[in-house]
Design a protein around this nucleic acid. Structure first.
Lengths: 97, 97
DNA sequence: TTTACGTTTCGATAATTGTCGAATTATAAA
DNA sequence: TTTATAATTCGACAATTATCGAAACGTAAA
Protein backbone atom coordinates (compact mmCIF):
# COMPACT_ATOMS: atom_id res chain seq x y z
CA UNK A 1 0.00 0.00 0.00
CA UNK A 2 1.41 3.33 -1.02
CA UNK A 3 2.37 5.88 1.61
CA UNK A 4 -0.26 8.47 0.84
CA UNK A 5 -2.94 5.85 1.02
CA UNK A 6 -1.75 4.44 4.35
CA UNK A 7 -1.63 7.90 5.81
CA UNK A 8 -5.13 8.60 4.60
CA UNK A 9 -6.43 5.44 6.23
CA UNK A 10 -4.60 6.21 9.46
CA UNK A 11 -6.04 9.70 9.42
CA UNK A 12 -9.52 8.31 8.97
CA UNK A 13 -9.07 6.20 12.08
CA UNK A 14 -7.25 8.82 14.11
CA UNK A 15 -10.36 10.53 15.41
CA UNK A 16 -12.05 8.86 18.33
CA UNK A 17 -15.62 9.31 17.19
CA UNK A 18 -14.77 8.14 13.71
CA UNK A 19 -12.95 5.14 15.05
CA UNK A 20 -15.90 4.20 17.19
CA UNK A 21 -18.23 4.52 14.24
CA UNK A 22 -15.93 2.25 12.30
CA UNK A 23 -15.81 -0.34 15.08
CA UNK A 24 -19.57 -0.21 15.49
CA UNK A 25 -20.06 -0.87 11.81
CA UNK A 26 -17.67 -3.74 12.13
CA UNK A 27 -19.40 -5.17 15.17
CA UNK A 28 -22.89 -4.87 13.75
CA UNK A 29 -22.09 -6.41 10.44
CA UNK A 30 -19.31 -8.61 9.32
CA UNK A 31 -19.34 -7.99 5.62
CA UNK A 32 -23.11 -8.13 5.62
CA UNK A 33 -25.45 -5.17 5.46
CA UNK A 34 -27.51 -3.82 8.23
CA UNK A 35 -30.59 -5.65 6.97
CA UNK A 36 -33.30 -4.95 9.51
CA UNK A 37 -31.33 -2.32 11.31
CA UNK A 38 -30.84 -0.06 8.37
CA UNK A 39 -31.06 3.17 10.27
CA UNK A 40 -28.54 2.01 12.77
CA UNK A 41 -25.57 4.17 11.95
CA UNK A 42 -27.28 7.45 12.56
CA UNK A 43 -29.13 6.13 15.57
CA UNK A 44 -25.82 5.05 17.01
CA UNK A 45 -24.50 8.55 16.69
CA UNK A 46 -27.43 10.04 18.54
CA UNK A 47 -27.05 7.63 21.41
CA UNK A 48 -23.43 6.85 22.00
CA UNK A 49 -21.56 9.78 20.52
CA UNK A 50 -22.43 13.36 21.16
CA UNK A 51 -22.38 14.53 17.58
CA UNK A 52 -25.01 15.85 15.23
CA UNK A 53 -26.15 14.54 11.89
CA UNK A 54 -23.87 16.78 9.80
CA UNK A 55 -20.84 15.58 11.72
CA UNK A 56 -21.93 11.99 11.33
CA UNK A 57 -22.33 12.47 7.62
CA UNK A 58 -18.87 13.98 7.46
CA UNK A 59 -17.28 11.09 9.35
CA UNK A 60 -18.96 8.47 7.20
CA UNK A 61 -17.71 10.23 4.12
CA UNK A 62 -14.16 10.22 5.46
CA UNK A 63 -14.31 6.53 6.25
CA UNK A 64 -15.73 5.78 2.83
CA UNK A 65 -13.17 8.04 1.22
CA UNK A 66 -10.39 6.06 2.83
CA UNK A 67 -12.02 2.91 1.49
CA UNK A 68 -12.53 1.61 4.99
CA UNK A 69 -16.26 1.27 4.56
CA UNK A 70 -18.77 1.16 1.76
CA UNK A 71 -22.02 3.04 2.14
CA UNK A 72 -25.23 2.63 0.29
CA UNK A 73 -28.50 4.45 0.40
CA UNK A 74 -31.45 2.28 1.20
CA UNK A 75 -34.65 4.22 1.24
CA UNK A 76 -34.21 7.17 3.55
CA UNK A 77 -31.39 5.50 5.41
CA UNK A 78 -27.75 4.74 4.91
CA UNK A 79 -26.35 1.30 5.32
CA UNK A 80 -22.67 0.64 5.68
CA UNK A 81 -20.31 -2.27 5.70
CA UNK A 82 -16.63 -2.75 6.31
CA UNK A 83 -14.33 -2.95 3.31
CA UNK A 84 -12.36 -5.97 4.44
CA UNK A 85 -9.82 -5.56 1.69
CA UNK A 86 -8.48 -2.30 3.07
CA UNK A 87 -8.46 -3.58 6.62
CA UNK A 88 -6.56 -6.67 5.57
CA UNK A 89 -4.07 -4.64 3.57
CA UNK A 90 -3.45 -2.42 6.55
CA UNK A 91 -3.06 -5.42 8.80
CA UNK A 92 -0.46 -6.86 6.47
CA UNK A 93 1.43 -3.62 6.41
CA UNK A 94 1.66 -3.64 10.18
CA UNK A 95 2.97 -7.15 10.05
CA UNK A 96 6.36 -5.65 9.22
CA UNK A 97 7.76 -9.06 8.31
CA UNK B 1 -5.88 -2.41 22.95
CA UNK B 2 -8.11 0.25 24.39
CA UNK B 3 -9.79 2.77 22.10
CA UNK B 4 -7.94 5.85 23.28
CA UNK B 5 -4.67 4.09 22.79
CA UNK B 6 -5.47 2.88 19.27
CA UNK B 7 -6.56 6.34 18.29
CA UNK B 8 -3.36 7.79 19.66
CA UNK B 9 -1.27 5.36 17.64
CA UNK B 10 -3.29 6.04 14.51
CA UNK B 11 -2.87 9.75 15.05
CA UNK B 12 0.86 9.31 15.37
CA UNK B 13 0.94 7.60 12.00
CA UNK B 14 -1.55 9.87 10.30
CA UNK B 15 0.95 12.52 9.32
CA UNK B 16 2.98 11.78 6.23
CA UNK B 17 6.31 13.03 7.48
CA UNK B 18 5.89 11.21 10.75
CA UNK B 19 4.91 8.03 9.00
CA UNK B 20 7.98 8.24 6.80
CA UNK B 21 10.19 8.76 9.81
CA UNK B 22 8.63 5.71 11.38
CA UNK B 23 9.17 3.61 8.28
CA UNK B 24 12.73 4.80 7.95
CA UNK B 25 13.46 3.79 11.51
CA UNK B 26 11.93 0.45 10.78
CA UNK B 27 13.92 -0.03 7.61
CA UNK B 28 17.23 1.00 9.11
CA UNK B 29 16.93 -1.12 12.17
CA UNK B 30 14.85 -4.12 12.91
CA UNK B 31 14.74 -4.00 16.67
CA UNK B 32 18.45 -3.06 16.75
CA UNK B 33 19.89 0.39 17.31
CA UNK B 34 21.47 2.60 14.76
CA UNK B 35 24.95 1.62 15.89
CA UNK B 36 27.34 3.33 13.52
CA UNK B 37 24.69 5.53 12.00
CA UNK B 38 23.66 7.19 15.21
CA UNK B 39 23.02 10.58 13.73
CA UNK B 40 20.86 9.06 11.05
CA UNK B 41 17.42 10.14 12.16
CA UNK B 42 18.12 13.81 12.00
CA UNK B 43 20.21 13.50 8.87
CA UNK B 44 17.30 11.72 7.25
CA UNK B 45 15.05 14.63 8.02
CA UNK B 46 17.41 17.14 6.46
CA UNK B 47 17.63 15.16 3.29
CA UNK B 48 14.35 13.46 2.54
CA UNK B 49 11.82 15.55 4.37
CA UNK B 50 11.67 19.28 4.23
CA UNK B 51 11.37 19.90 7.91
CA UNK B 52 13.61 21.56 10.47
CA UNK B 53 15.13 20.15 13.62
CA UNK B 54 12.38 21.38 15.97
CA UNK B 55 9.75 19.69 13.85
CA UNK B 56 11.76 16.50 13.75
CA UNK B 57 12.11 16.57 17.51
CA UNK B 58 8.37 17.03 17.81
CA UNK B 59 7.59 14.10 15.53
CA UNK B 60 9.96 11.78 17.33
CA UNK B 61 8.34 12.70 20.58
CA UNK B 62 4.90 11.91 19.20
CA UNK B 63 6.00 8.54 17.92
CA UNK B 64 7.64 7.74 21.23
CA UNK B 65 4.59 8.98 23.09
CA UNK B 66 2.43 6.57 21.15
CA UNK B 67 4.87 3.81 22.09
CA UNK B 68 5.65 3.20 18.46
CA UNK B 69 9.35 3.82 18.93
CA UNK B 70 11.84 4.01 21.74
CA UNK B 71 14.45 6.74 21.68
CA UNK B 72 17.68 6.98 23.54
CA UNK B 73 20.34 9.62 23.75
CA UNK B 74 23.76 8.42 22.77
CA UNK B 75 26.30 11.17 23.07
CA UNK B 76 25.09 14.11 21.11
CA UNK B 77 22.79 12.03 18.97
CA UNK B 78 19.49 10.27 19.27
CA UNK B 79 19.04 6.66 18.41
CA UNK B 80 15.67 5.10 17.86
CA UNK B 81 14.20 1.69 17.41
CA UNK B 82 10.77 0.33 16.67
CA UNK B 83 8.65 -0.89 19.55
CA UNK B 84 7.54 -4.15 17.99
CA UNK B 85 5.05 -4.82 20.72
CA UNK B 86 2.84 -1.89 19.78
CA UNK B 87 3.10 -2.63 16.09
CA UNK B 88 2.13 -6.24 16.67
CA UNK B 89 -0.77 -5.24 18.88
CA UNK B 90 -2.04 -2.90 16.22
CA UNK B 91 -1.64 -5.57 13.58
CA UNK B 92 -3.71 -7.96 15.65
CA UNK B 93 -6.41 -5.38 16.09
CA UNK B 94 -6.70 -4.97 12.35
CA UNK B 95 -7.01 -8.69 11.99
CA UNK B 96 -10.67 -8.30 12.88
CA UNK B 97 -11.13 -12.05 13.06
C1' DT C 1 36.92 25.40 30.23
C1' DT C 2 35.77 27.15 25.99
C1' DT C 3 33.78 25.93 21.71
C1' DA C 4 31.02 23.52 18.43
C1' DC C 5 27.37 20.74 17.36
C1' DG C 6 23.06 17.96 18.00
C1' DT C 7 18.80 18.27 20.18
C1' DT C 8 15.02 20.35 22.69
C1' DT C 9 12.02 24.01 24.36
C1' DC C 10 9.35 28.09 23.66
C1' DG C 11 6.27 31.14 21.41
C1' DA C 12 4.11 32.27 17.29
C1' DT C 13 1.66 31.37 13.03
C1' DA C 14 -0.63 29.07 9.22
C1' DA C 15 -3.12 25.06 7.91
C1' DT C 16 -6.18 21.45 9.00
C1' DT C 17 -9.95 19.45 11.14
C1' DG C 18 -14.22 18.55 14.11
C1' DT C 19 -18.24 20.43 15.01
C1' DC C 20 -22.51 22.94 14.61
C1' DG C 21 -26.98 25.40 12.90
C1' DA C 22 -29.50 26.45 9.00
C1' DA C 23 -30.83 25.43 4.61
C1' DT C 24 -31.32 21.89 1.04
C1' DT C 25 -32.17 17.45 -1.06
C1' DA C 26 -34.17 12.86 -1.40
C1' DT C 27 -37.36 9.52 -0.33
C1' DA C 28 -41.36 7.37 1.57
C1' DA C 29 -45.78 7.72 3.75
C1' DA C 30 -50.11 10.07 4.25
C1' DT D 1 -49.12 15.97 -4.16
C1' DT D 2 -48.33 17.46 0.34
C1' DT D 3 -45.87 16.24 4.42
C1' DA D 4 -42.54 14.15 7.41
C1' DT D 5 -38.21 12.18 8.08
C1' DA D 6 -33.28 10.90 6.94
C1' DA D 7 -29.23 12.58 5.14
C1' DT D 8 -26.24 16.03 2.94
C1' DT D 9 -24.32 20.51 1.85
C1' DC D 10 -22.85 25.02 3.17
C1' DG D 11 -20.68 28.50 5.85
C1' DA D 12 -18.77 29.53 10.08
C1' DC D 13 -16.11 28.88 14.19
C1' DA D 14 -13.21 26.69 17.73
C1' DA D 15 -9.74 23.44 18.59
C1' DT D 16 -5.83 21.03 17.15
C1' DT D 17 -1.67 20.41 14.81
C1' DA D 18 2.54 21.08 11.76
C1' DT D 19 5.86 24.02 11.22
C1' DC D 20 9.35 27.55 12.03
C1' DG D 21 12.98 30.88 14.11
C1' DA D 22 15.25 31.99 18.14
C1' DA D 23 16.97 30.76 22.33
C1' DA D 24 18.47 27.28 25.64
C1' DC D 25 20.50 22.94 26.89
C1' DG D 26 23.75 18.92 26.95
C1' DT D 27 27.67 16.66 25.54
C1' DA D 28 32.02 15.83 23.42
C1' DA D 29 36.11 17.60 21.39
C1' DA D 30 39.56 21.11 21.23
Amino acid sequence: METNRVVKVMKALSNKNRFEIFMEIYKTNKQATYEDEECFIYEFMMKKLKIGAPTMSHHLKELANADLIVTEKRGKNIIARINEETVTELGNLLRLE
